[in-house]
Write a protein that binds this DNA or RNA. Sequence first.
RNA 1: GGGCGCUUAGCUCAGUUGGUUAGAGCGUACGGUUCACAUCCGUAAGGUCGGAGGUUCAAUUCCUCCAGCGCCCACCA
Length: 834
Amino acid sequence: MEKSYQPSKYEDNIYRLWEKSNYFNPDKLPKRSANQRKNKAFTIVLPPPNVTGQLHVGHTLMLAIEDLIVRFKRMQGYTTLWLPGTDHAAIATQNVVEKSLLKQGKTREKLGREQFIAECWKWTHQYHDRIVKQIKKIGASLDWSRERFTMDKAMSTAVNQLFIQMYQDGLIYQGKRLINWCPRCQSSLADDEVEYQDTTGAFYYIKYPFKNNPKQHLTIATTRPETMLGDTAVAVNPKDKRYKQFIGQELLLPLTNRTIPIIADEHVTLDMGTGALKVTPAHDPDDYEIGQRHNLPIINLLSKDGKLNKNGGIYQGIDCLAARQKVIDDLKIQNLFIKEEPIVHRVGHCYRCQTIIEPIISKQWFINVNKKIKQTNKTLRQLASEAVTEKSIRIIPERFNKTYFQWIDNLHDWCISRQIWWGHRLPIWYCQQCNEIITSVKKPNKCPKCHSHNLVRDEDTLDTWFSSALWPFSTLGWPNQSKDYQNFYPTDVLETGYDILFFWVARMIMMGIYATGKCPFHTVYLHGLVCDQRGKKMSKSKGNVIEPLSVAEKYGADALRLSFILGNSPGNNLNLDERKIAGFRNFINKLWNISRFISGQTKVKKQNPLHRIYEGTKKIPRAKTVADQWILSRLDETIDFVTQKIEQCNFSLAGEHLYDFTWHDLADWYLEISKVQINDLALKQNTQQILLYSLDRILKLWHPFIPFVTEQIYQDLFNRRWINKKKGLLLIQVWPRQRNLSKQGKKDNQQILGQFNFIQQIIISLRNFKTDQKIKAKQVIKVYIIQSKHKELIRQQQQIITRLTKTELFFTEPSIDQKYLKLEQTTEKYLIEN
RNA sequence: GGGCGCUUAGCUCAGUUGGUUAGAGCGUACGGUUCACAUCCGUAAGGUCGGAGGUUCAAUUCCUCCAGCGCCCACCA
């Protein structure tokens, strides 16, 4: 073994070794004879990364946590499946492909649908390999033989099947409604795909003259003057004394030759603006509602690209912002403009391209979340709600239950159709003859109603999140009752970032229960975002991005993984500092050197019979000294603690305890003591066995956290040549258990622990003394034990004490009194000669 | 407007059902080249646990209020 551990030298080989073993595939795992869990499956599906994306630190965090869980369960004997895949990320992918086409002077319209989709596939294939390679670098033990892509044929089948089923159940409907429109993506967006940002704009005060008395006017305040061209009323609160008298009168709408009524609506707030609200049903959600209540006409002003259409009159072809200024200018000329005031308000932006969203009226497809499903007599919203209230699903950390319910309480029908080309095309056909709607994946022969052959498929594709929502079961073969579906569904833990609780998790729950009748998982573990060392979100523009692969290259994937697990807790953001990663690199080197030391002390060779000791969990070395007993008992405690904490999903505490044991108990104390014991013929073999036993156990305990280095050490030291190489992989070794101690054994243990503590106290005190007195560490000083209840113990441990403190012990009274050192918390007295 | 979270050592954060001297890593100071490791070893300094009040024998932990910061949701033109 080399003096220091160089991760980049080993990691790729180790991953190849694992892949070659096929043990990531649950079907290929060795059967465990005496294990009661041998038939129990454990499943996690990987939240599929965007196929055209790069691996970022958030992914790495996710992989570190999930791999930890999966490796732990695998070692415990579960038939463990971690299923990988990638997402076609409809809008995001379409955007990058369009951008790249633009560089070549092409547009998707020029290319045509078929060509464009081919182009998307090209990108998908090209970038797929990159992201998979990146995932492997982190050490993720994913079963690549079961890899899926959200646009795979099988996924498509599931998507179509569920769409048609929902359509037939009346849960999917088509409707002309106000939706969020991104003029850049030229597509509709779901409500939660709109990000609201505080933006400084202005409140513009405008005169709307009365029809029968044009010299008088009502003052309107608006942030979007350009939309006045689509006004179809002015609303006031019925209780508003200022305007009560005007209700029912008509106003002249400036810049147009239309008149609009003054109506009364409770929605209007008295102290907002001027208390008189211009109503533009086509371009504002509130106004739309008011329009519906009062049967107002709807005037759509915008075309798909966000520019004013023919209803915009002389402003046609101008985009919103430019039109706004022009409208203001024109109002000023007519002396209808009063003033403007700066105001900060929330403006919706597209979550994929940050363009300002325009609410427009459009014909779209929706999922009805409030319609009772005939089979269960419950709505989708109820199904999703009850899964959590009835504790079929546990969310970690628990506080996100509230967030979840808040979403459910505000849930509106989900707009699932998108006007982009890259995605699952709606299995919907229209008869051009009789307007009949037909659901079918393939082109139907004829219209079932009028027998016409003139059928046209709906141009729209489905929201990415629709196919993602089916991920836990579409990947396992649903709608077929396949073997995988039966064995591995429902899955166990769903681990992901809290930022996609709504987008993804909630919808998986909703759709999963509807489609399969079962909750797709029983535990949701939410991790936080990864920020920089100052708690700022990482972004390219800020230049504070930590690129996971270059960091993994520099410090090792294991070190990177540890910095995500330790000092982190579920649901909280993690501030990642490169120095932290460097710290864990140091720890990993420490572990490497612990192994190197033990290997040297025990002269381990692959054929050494000492190896029998690790063969199973059964054989346990005997403790001959106080230190032996202490380290074995600390190890037991650690095994117990780590196991418990991982099971409780408290990975950080588990890792920190293990870190502490490894470095401070094992390395700082026992390894030092072993140097003394190994020189004692009576203790030598026992000490070697305990060293090896401890190393074996900590390698196993550490493996889910830092798989590469532990596997490398394990292969170097423990995988004997004469057994099957594959079976000697740490990856599938049995998870450690505590020793079985009798009652008496436990009692003796307690006593011995006390004794060892005492020895530690003496050693620490003596070291302190030397430091305080500025005595060189190297210099040997004489220590006289004057009185002690533990004189025998000290005598017995004499060699250890002297070696660890560089002292000489005497058990006789010295000739002259000098300096006394009194140990704290004892009545012990020692005389120390300077 | 509603909800959630954070505030603990110079920095980044842990702290399990309230219980002796509140922990870690990094940083700092001092001292160390012995045959595992300077990516190391030893020792130390450093906190009235944001503020005020309450419950309790006992509060960093539970409750109320206040302040600062952050996030999420909602139809404020």
